[in-house]
């Protein structure tokens, strides 16, 4: 028994390390290419950057557009996540609890589900017209738009999760004299936290890395750009220069990588603390 388990662990390690190599290799190449001159890269893509070439990276990091894009991206992501925290769990709570008895809420739920299946292109141009009519072609406008767009998926995930939480505890809170708001904030919301973590991480990653929505709404000047737009526009301008191209890749993914390194425990912990319980 003990021996068998040991052998299995060796296999586990081998498989996991293989997987890590698959994950790391492209990242390794990206990083070393960013820190090598083109001449160095053209000799071999795999060697370490010796001597290290910092010019490309410096060029990206000293670009004021990069920092503005960074700030915009943080700003948009923060609003969207905050909106998700405030709107989605409470809405899902209402929908999940009323769905069994109320036709209206059931319709609302299916109405929301519908959104998951609508291809983006259908609403793209109308969206542009709508946003510009409301003077919302700016980061704040995009953030509000993203909250709206995340409704269907977030509610879908929350409602599914709520279904597995028995209403006993809410009943108890009610008997203790708590109102709906109190019941929600002190009983339901804490129960939803694991799923909230999942939703926030998923939406946060989506917003941070989204390309299409910023492209169509924030193209009125670099002051509005997000990191993906910065990277895309910068890279098309210097597409022939690998070093600079990869430096923009690195620069645009670096903030999130650093954030992830620091928050890794809470992110993985949040996701695995039972995001989906049966």
């Amino acid at each position: 028994m003990v021996e068998g388990r040991k052998q299995n662990n060796v296999l586990t390690y081998i498989l996991l390390v293989l997987g890590i190599m698959l994950i790391i290799l492209p990242l390794y190449v990206t990083f070393v290419t960013a820190f090598k001159s083109d001449a160095q890269s053209s000799k071999s893509f795999f060697t370490l950057p010796i001597p290290i070439y910092l010019e490309s990276f410096k060029e990206v990091l000293t670009n004021e557009r990069y920092w503005k894009a960074f700030i915009n991206t943080v700003y948009i992501t923060a609003i969207v996540l905050a909106g998700n925290i405030i709107i989605m769990p409470s809405m899902s709570y209402a929908v999940a609890r009323k769905m069994p008895t109320s036709m209206g809420y059931r319709l609302v739920y299916y109405f929301l589900l519908l959104g998951i299946f609508i291809p983006f292109q259908v609403k793209m141009m109308p969206l542009v017209k709508l946003l510009s009519a409301l003077n919302m072609m700016n980061p704040t406008g995009l953030a509000i738009l993203c909250i709206s767009s995340s409704t269907c998926e977030s509610v879908f995930l929350f409602v599914g999760y709520m279904g597995a939480i028995p209403p006993d505890m809410e009943e108890a809170a009610w008997i203790d004299g708590a109102g709906t708001l109190r019941t929600y904030s002190s009983v339901v919301f804490p129960l939803l936290k694991p799923m909230l973590a999942t939703v926030l991480i998923k939406q946060g990653l989506w917003i941070w890395n989204d390309f299409m929505l910023p492209l169509i709404t924030l193209n009125r000047g670099w002051q509005d750009w997000t990191l993906t737009l910065f990277q895309y526009n910068f890279q098309t301008e210097y597409s022939i220069n690998y070093s600079l191209t990869f430096a923009t890749f690195v620069a645009s993914m670096l903030p999130l990588l650093i954030f992830y390194c620091f928050m890794q425990k809470s992110i993985i912990g949040g996701l695995t603390s039972g995001a989906v319980k049966s």
């Binding site: 709107i87 809405m91 009323k98 809420y105 109405f111 609403k123 409704t151 269907c152 509610v155 929600y184």
Partner: peptide, 18 residues
């Protein structure tokens, strides 16, 4: 309360999505 909970999301979704 539930109506209040549902309204903002529903409104945003209807207006900016549907």
């Amino acid at each position: 309360a539930f109506l209040l909970f549902t309204a903002p999301g529903f409104f945003l979704y209807s207006f900016f999505f549907i």
